[in-house]
Amino acid sequence: MKPADIEYFRDLLKQMRDEIQKKGEDTIEDMTEDVQVYADPADRATAESDRAFTLRLRDRDRKLIRKINEALERIEDGSFGICEECGEEIGIPRLKARPVTTLCIKCKSRQEEEEALLGD
């Protein structure tokens, strides 16, 4: 991979991480400000459901931040863009679609096929 490509992905990953962290900070701020008393139990249930959904999203974001940090570590150690399974280069289009990926499209497809067979 060219140095310009590496720099592109480093910047992209850092930008993704910053955006996710900002969303998390906004969520914390919103939840501390949004202490309300609801007269109607249905309104309270809706608010609780919305809050639970938001917390699930932030949990997914937390896991994605871990993957982003791991991808940044791979950039630093020179293994970014190399499939962990077969050792081949992961294509730039795949990395642009999913910059935290560790598998090339062929190995990922094979993994999904195996999971589908086990799931049936």
Score class of each variant (00 low, 15 high):
17 R>M: 08
70 E>K: 08
2 K>P: 06
60 R>V: 14
82 I>P: 03
88 E>T: 12
91 G>K: 06
12 L>E: 00
68 I>Y: 07
75 I>C: 05
97 A>V: 04
24 G>L: 06
2 K>E: 10
7 E>P: 03
33 E>Q: 15
40 D>A: 12
97 A>P: 04
81 G>P: 06
47 A>F: 12
24 G>C: 02
66 R>Q: 11
73 E>N: 14
22 K>V: 05
103 L>C: 08
4 A>F: 07
22 K>P: 00
54 T>P: 00
67 K>Q: 11
84 E>H: 07
118 L>C: 03
71 A>K: 00
26 D>E: 14
14 K>A: 05
26 D>N: 13
6 I>D: 00
19 E>N: 14
70 E>W: 01
1 M>I: 13
82 I>N: 00
21 Q>V: 10
120 D>G: 08
44 R>F: 08
69 N>E: 13
7 E>I: 12
76 E>W: 04
55 L>A: 14
29 E>T: 12
114 E>R: 15
118 L>Y: 09
19 E>K: 15
66 R>K: 13
108 K>F: 07
88 E>K: 15
48 E>S: 12
10 R>N: 07
31 M>N: 03
71 A>R: 00
34 D>T: 02
91 G>V: 09
79 S>Y: 11
7 E>V: 08
18 D>C: 01
91 G>P: 00
45 A>G: 06
52 A>C: 05
90 I>V: 14
99 P>L: 03
66 R>Y: 09
90 I>D: 04
36 Q>E: 07
105 I>D: 11
35 V>P: 00
44 R>T: 03
89 E>K: 15
11 D>T: 12
51 R>P: 00
80 F>S: 02
101 T>F: 06
114 E>T: 13
64 L>D: 01
118 L>D: 07
112 E>A: 11
50 D>F: 10
118 L>R: 15
78 G>V: 08
22 K>M: 07
100 V>I: 15
88 E>D: 15
72 L>K: 01
116 A>N: 08
120 D>A: 09
109 S>P: 04
71 A>V: 02
47 A>C: 07
68 I>M: 03
38 Y>I: 06
91 G>E: 13
34 D>V: 04
64 L>K: 13
10 R>T: 02
36 Q>A: 11
62 R>P: 01
71 A>M: 03
46 T>F: 06
6 I>H: 03
15 Q>E: 09
59 D>C: 02
115 E>R: 13
21 Q>I: 08
104 C>T: 01
96 K>T: 05
50 D>S: 13
76 E>N: 13
7 E>W: 01
84 E>G: 11
32 T>L: 01
12 L>N: 01
14 K>H: 06
96 K>Y: 10
116 A>E: 13
69 N>G: 10
22 K>D: 04
11 D>K: 15
115 E>I: 11
85 E>R: 14
